[in-house]
């Protein structure tokens, strides 16, 4: 079982992880958003530059199809989570006491 020091406490941190603590900083997370946006823009721009062999009309007529589809599909799946959880979410003991072994 795990020991539970206070968050931010260095005790128990693996030597390798000490070099990676920047991953946890809010500043890094903010920057990552912009880095990812830049990467999406680059990939989308590259889509215009390459020779493509689309199979379907929607790929052919709309060059950034994959980028837009990826964003919309992901967002749709996530946003559907809100109503779905209200619909099918129940307390952990719904089936029987101590049913959840997670």
């Amino acid at each position: 079982m795990s020991e539970t020091p206070r968050p931010g406490d260095d005790a128990g941190i693996h030597p390798l992880s000490k070099r990676l603590l920047f991953l946890d900083s809010p500043r890094f997370k903010r920057r990552m958003l912009w880095v990812l946006l830049a990467l999406v823009m680059v990939a989308t721009a590259a889509g215009f530059a390459i020779e493509r062999h689309p199979h379907f009309w929607f790929e052919e007529r709309f060059a950034p199809f994959h980028a837009v589809f990826g964003f919309v599909a992901f967002s749709f799946a996530v946003i559907c989570g809100w109503p779905l959880r209200h619909l099918v979410g129940r307390p952990e003991n719904y089936y029987s006491p101590n049913d959840d072994d997670a």
Binding site: L33, R85, P91
Partner: peptide
């Protein structure tokens, strides 16, 4: 394009607080 846009969507939805927080539910 597909995977980067999806990863960006995750970061964006987390940033604006739209990603559903985890809850102890069945």
């Amino acid at each position: 394009q597909l995977v980067l846009a999806a990863v960006f969507a995750f970061a964006f939805l987390m940033r604006i607080g739209v990603y559903p927080p985890e809850k102890r539910l069945v």
